[in-house]
């Protein structure tokens, strides 16, 4: 299933604070068991339904999240 939006989480910047987790309206972000080099458990995206609302990126204190949304000009694909 092709996605319309997604987030890129910089694993080494994430501190696993979970502020993005509570900000996601889809509850699509989860704290994973993966550790980064500093030993923090990191957050990952666990949904294909991301709308690119940028809520997670706005509240991320570590500038770890960038958000991509399929440009409107492109012909949307059926989901």
């Amino acid at each position: 299933m092709a996605r319309k939006a997604t987030v890129l989480i910089d694993k080494e910047l994430c501190k696993g604070c979970e502020l993005c987790v509570i900000a996601c309206p889809l509850e699509g972000l989860v704290l994973s068991d993966d550790l980064n080099l500093k030993g923090y458990r990191i957050v990952r995206l666990d949904t294909d339904k991301c709308t690119g609302c940028v809520n997670c990126a706005l509240v991320c204190p570590d500038s770890a999240i960038s958000v991509f949304r399929e440009p409107k000009a492109a012909k949307p694909e059926a989901t």
């Binding site: 997604t6 989480i9 694993k11 690119g52 990126a57 570590d62 500038s63 958000v67 991509f68 399929e70």
Partner: peptide, 28 residues
Amino acid sequence: TFIEEDWMSKPDALVYDNHPETLIDRPL
């Protein structure tokens, strides 16, 4: 932590840049 989509390389696809020119890219 994600799978790349074709449209992601398009110029307007990045709707939230975590490090604009004004923010230095280093761990806080």
